[in-house]
Write a protein that binds this DNA or RNA. Sequence first.
DNA 1: ATTGCTGCAAAACCTTTGCAAATGT
DNA 2: ACATTTGCAAAGGTTTTGCAGCAAT
Lengths: 170, 170
Amino acid sequence: MKDQSCSHSGLPRHDCAKDDNGQIDVLRRIENAFFDLSRPNTGPRRILVEKLAELAHTGEAFSADDLWQSLRASHGRIGRATVFRAIEQLVESNVLDRVELCDGSHRYRVCGGSHHHHLVCTMCNRVVDFLDCLSDRKFDEIGRRHGFTVKDHKLTVYGTCDRCLKSGGK
Amino acid sequence: MKDQSCSHSGLPRHDCAKDDNGQIDVLRRIENAFFDLSRPNTGPRRILVEKLAELAHTGEAFSADDLWQSLRASHGRIGRATVFRAIEQLVESNVLDRVELCDGSHRYRVCGGSHHHHLVCTMCNRVVDFLDCLSDRKFDEIGRRHGFTVKDHKLTVYGTCDRCLKSGGK
DNA sequence: ATTGCTGCAAAACCTTTGCAAATGT
DNA sequence: ACATTTGCAAAGGTTTTGCAGCAAT
């Protein structure tokens, strides 16, 4: 079995002024996430930060392998494991979100840091954020009803995006 | 990539009188799911149906491997692939739910057939159902706002169950 | 110097696939 | 007889691990 820790402590570790300033903020958040827990500002990390800032900008969702391929294409050699290890840390630090697709596979995505959920296109896997959700009191109530102390939740909505509808989705 | 189909057509294929009659109903639902699409009432399927009725009763969540181990322990040889193939069909037929744990792994669970969501204990992986959710109009509105046609959604709540809290969970 | 990261290759993990043999109808 | 499922073993895809060497502090 995998790491049972579920340390979405809920709140982002860094203040995230809304993304109005674009990549700068995201860049800083990613750097912070790396350098909070570990010191070295290494080459691989720099190119990772750079690439992730790009991906944050486009909002693209990617698989671990996508990211690896993309990094080794634009820059030279980088280890697969390095990418996996970085993703793990960044998910932990709430810089990346793990998004479940409806087929059970998953992608990652640079997230804004504040609480949100995902709307996923089942045809092209495009992911969009939204804020709507049940209230915290409601979640507490659900928990109370079953003897649970609620810590976190995840809401994912699946559908077809306009682009795919046009290009002949059922 | 995996099978991109997302054929939670949403509605259960068989009427599911609430589980007041216990295992009988569940048993029938599982049998129907198997025998709708394919004929042979084979040995492996019989023991699968039997075991799943048990699991439905206890509400236990299990991995594909758990189920395989358990079947080969109680009955003789059964192929790993047979179990995986059965799970696939039963998920498709809305007899089993796939539940994501907070670490990204997943379990299966015999479900009642009607729309519901899951409350998952992050310590023992116990799973409990609940019904609360946003309204359909709300989901439609979320979709409309982003140009999506909403088909399905999934809400999973993570927390600590009373049993685990008592036995020293943080 | 010390500490921790990196790349590689191997291993682990989980799931799917191909196919001959067995089974149900 | 026929069609389908089964079990096995092999392959597949993805993620993790071990470790020697390297880089940053």
